[in-house]
């Protein structure tokens, strides 16, 4: 099983994962770099500090599960899973290529460590809630971490799932909204306003926190608090910077689904290296 990494280790991991994200998308000339970079700190905190999991036994019954509901951000989860040895790092070179197990969006039957297939937006909380209900029936005590995009929660299914998780008191569900205020067509508050977001989730019966989703201490503390809030599902609204870590990608909606060109790729890697 994994050990709890301290914050300096997490920061170094996040830098490596970010470089891998950019490299994967550059090499494939396809993929979603902005949202992956923004969510990196949440994924790193989960896989290297918070979650119980074991890459040598991916189907270990007592593991915590992670579901990437914003399924387009596969680069961040693939980079983390490879680094945790769920599959060889060499496989990352096949991302989005014919024959790969690393599909553009997560495909659970093929990729070790991927817990649920997602892709069309809005599936993750429902799927995670179904799994969490299953764990309750089986009397198993692990957690289901679900990462949603903020644009994603404009999907009606998300609010169906919000009601469902409340009805069955699924306190083994700890979800994040990656709140970067940007979606494909621009600012979320212009495309389809979401604020005020906290009272929305509270009124659906969830325990809700707002944090800086690029701050490891805040992420870790929020999960600890979510675990203490028994009897209801938890939502952590994590304010993040889309494109985090690469200056010219930060807060730019145009980096949602555009791969970097060679010069941009080299500049991004250099920035991340220089940040050491």
């Amino acid at each position: 099983m994994n050990k709890k990494a301290d914050i300096n280790v997490l920061k170094a991991k996040a830098r490596e994962i970010r470089k891998e994200i950019i490299t994967m998308v550059y090499r494939a000339n396809s993929g979603h770099v902005g949202g992956s970079l923004g969510a990196t700190d949440i994924v790193v905190a989960l896989y290297y500090h918070i979650m119980k999991h074991d890459a040598t036994n991916p189907m270990w019954a007592q593991r915590d599960r992670f579901i990437l509901s914003k399924g387009h951000c596969t680069p961040v989860i693939y980079a983390a899973l490879a680094d945790c040895n769920y599959f060889p790092a060499e496989d990352l070179k096949t991302f989005r290529r014919p024959g790969t197990h690393l599909q553009g969006h997560p495909f659970q039957p093929k990729t070790p460590g991927i817990e649920a297939s997602t892709g069309t937006l809005g599936l993750g909380i429902s799927t995670g809630a179904g799994m969490a209900l299953g764990a309750k029936i089986k009397n198993e005590r692990h957690y289901y971490y679900i990462l949603c995009g903020d644009g994603e929660i404009q999907e009606g299914q998300v609010w169906e799932a919000a009601m469902f998780a409340n009805k069955y008191k699924l306190d083994n569900v700890i979800a994040f909204v990656d709140r970067n205020y940007l979606q494909t067509d621009g600012n979320s508050e212009k495309v389809m306003p979401l604020d005020p977001l906290k009272p929305k989730w509270e009124s659906f019966g969830w325990h809700v926190q707002e944090i800086d989703g690029n701050d490891f201490a805040e992420i870790i503390n929020a999960v600890d608090e979510a675990k203490r809030a028994t009897g209801k599902p938890s939502m952590i609204i994590a304010r993040t910077v889309k494109g985090k870590g690469v200056s010219f990608m930060e807060n730019e909606a145009s980096w949602h689904g555009t791969p970097p060109k060679k010069v941009e790729y080299e500049k991004a890697i250099k920035e991340l290296d220089d940040g050491v």
Binding site: Q108, E115, A116, S117, L123, S126, T127, G128, A129, G130, M131, A132, L133, G134, A135, K138, Q157, A161, F164
Partner: peptide, 9 residues
């Protein structure tokens, strides 16, 4: 999707 989750478990 809940049914899918239950099947996964």
């Amino acid at each position: 999707s809940v049914a899918a989750g239950l099947a996964l478990e």
